[in-house]
Amino acid sequence: MAGQWTGVVIPVHDVNPARRVPWVTYALIAVNFAVFLRTPGMAGSLVGEGGLAQACRLESFLGQWAAVPRELIHGRLPELVPTGQVAVGPSGPGCLVGPPGYDKSPPLSALTAMFLHGSWLHLLGNMMFLWVFGDNVEDRLGRVRYLLFYGLCGYAATYGFALVDAGSATPLIGASGAVAGVLGAYLVLYPGARVWVLVPFLILLPLRLPAWTVLGLWFVLQAVYSYGAGVSQAGSVAYLAHVVGFVVGMLCAWPLRRGTVPPPEPGGPLWGRRARPGPARPRWSRPIW
């Protein structure tokens, strides 16, 4: 969703080896980067490139491809949309508006919006979480079901937010809702997996924490930020969409938790004690859903 991830830790690696190469996760990350680099003005945003003409092109691009709650719920396009051109009026230059020159499908825009991001920070935050946690969820579900699951969580997050703010004309963009679903599934399937995180405390302090701590804390923060704050007061981050995606991911993964082989316990000190070695992961186990 529009905005960036909010939390107190930065996950960088989990101690939870997958049995097969997560090609779908890699492909999703690659497509997100490719679309971002093709989005008007995004490639140069890191070095401050921009201007009114570029902003107008971006506004027109998002109007066509982003998900807009008012369009999703009511199923119709506005009469006037940004055209991508600059207009000079009595109050100064601005973006020209006119009748839409495209035929937009609101339900399809919920899919295309999952691959759009508003900044490098927004993109990198989403892709880091997907990189760390997506491989094991893909491994457990299987590639085709994982791809369908990813899309389902993204759609649920987008429409869940749109239902609450049905009159909003602010575009919703980002993979956050779908990635939140991956996090919810990971929490259900591998709550005891150890995750290396960086904690900002004067310096970036590396710690190894259980997944239930990392993801549970993240979810609580999203729920707190979404309650009563609203997107307009929360830095344009659709926290409610994160919450919806996370819950849908948990519900989808819940039937699989019994047949999931727990990750091996890492060796070495863990919270001041020695970790006990866990059972080896059988190579013959296959996803059951």
Rank of each mutant, 00 (worst) to 15 (best):
65 W>G: 03
62 L>H: 05
74 H>P: 07
70 R>F: 10
78 P>M: 05
91 S>Q: 15
66 A>R: 02
72 L>Y: 04
89 G>Q: 06
74 H>C: 05
75 G>F: 06
60 S>W: 06
66 A>Y: 06
63 G>C: 09
58 L>G: 02
78 P>A: 10
79 E>Y: 08
69 P>I: 06
92 G>L: 14
94 G>W: 00
64 Q>V: 15
65 W>L: 05
64 Q>N: 05
82 P>V: 10
91 S>C: 11
55 A>Q: 12
94 G>P: 08
79 E>C: 06
63 G>K: 01
58 L>M: 12
70 R>M: 07
86 V>D: 04
72 L>C: 05
75 G>Y: 00
86 V>R: 03
90 P>I: 11
68 V>T: 08
84 G>Y: 03
84 G>D: 00
70 R>P: 00
93 P>R: 13
72 L>T: 01
66 A>F: 05
83 T>M: 09
65 W>D: 04
93 P>I: 15
60 S>A: 15
92 G>Q: 10
78 P>E: 09
92 G>N: 15
56 C>F: 12
81 V>K: 08
69 P>H: 02
74 H>K: 05
55 A>K: 13
73 I>C: 03
63 G>H: 04
67 A>C: 02
90 P>F: 12
59 E>W: 14
59 E>I: 01
75 G>A: 06
65 W>T: 04
80 L>A: 11
82 P>L: 12
89 G>M: 05
66 A>P: 02
68 V>C: 01
68 V>K: 01
56 C>M: 06
70 R>H: 09
79 E>K: 10
65 W>C: 01
73 I>V: 11
76 R>N: 06
60 S>H: 14
83 T>G: 06
70 R>W: 10
92 G>F: 10
56 C>K: 01
77 L>I: 08
94 G>S: 15
